[in-house]
Design a protein around this nucleic acid. Structure first.
Lengths: 115, 115
DNA sequence: TGCTCATATGAGCAGTGCTTCAGATATCGC
DNA sequence: GCGATATCTGAAGCACTGCTCATATGAGCA
């Protein structure tokens, strides 16, 4: 493997986050890399707390797909459930998500939020 | 499709970003959802400007894989090239990336950055 | 000009992830 | 308890993505 600035490479290489951290980062961004989940998240940003069927209706996805999406988001502490009888009400459980979306929107040029 | 709160669904549905915006958001996050690209980005965060072979050496990836990664990042205005002879020096071209990484690190619990 | 090095590109393959379909779990009303 | 409803889960099919290998472009150098 070729190297031009060996010292810099050593410094940079040592400063890189460990594999676990990189993996977790990739997983978090992976959660946001799917249009279906993104719609779910933006819907919850708008609606606050919603049940599964309403989320599905608002997003235009099937209830099963939304349930799968919510399962992933729940496992990564992005959303929270509140169960009331046979209904399940979901809400965002992470203040960073909105900021992540705003930053990404700023990057792609759209200055305004989904709000 | 079942709906509980039809009015809320209508409001939320109308407030969702359009399909193009959702797609672009997903694409941006998708760029950050790969450990290989993440290593490239964190290396550039540390090293500032580096040539392809040094990036590859620092990340522990093949030069071809890094070149493919840089191609994607370049197409999405995340990195910038400066060509000098047969060398190609890459640097980050987006101030949002560092903030996105910091937010994601905050989400997964690690308070500190890759810095 | 011909050769070598640094990078870029294209094709092919393997792994991953999303969606749908079918069935399971749990709650409500009778 | 029984049936209906709301959500969840698992398996199969499918597309997408990233890797490697091979090759192309392009610059430096003899």
């Amino acid at each position: 493997m070729r190297v031009v600035d060996a010292e810099k490479v050593a410094v940079v290489s040592a400063a890189l986050p460990d594999g676990d951290t990189i993996g977790e980062l990739a997983q978090v961004f992976g959660l946001l890399s799917d249009p279906g989940r993104l719609r779910v998240i933006t819907a919850l940003l708008e609606g606050g707390e919603m049940c599964v069927c309403d989320i599905a209706a608002a997003c235009g996805n099937s209830e099963s797909a939304v349930s799968h999406a919510l399962r992933l988001l729940r496992a990564n502490r992005v959303v929270r459930v509140r169960r009331a009888g046979r209904m399940a009400y979901y809400r965002l459980d992470d203040s960073h998500v909105r900021m992540l979306l705003d930053l990404a929107l700023a990057h792609i040029g759209h200055g305004e939020d989904a709000e």
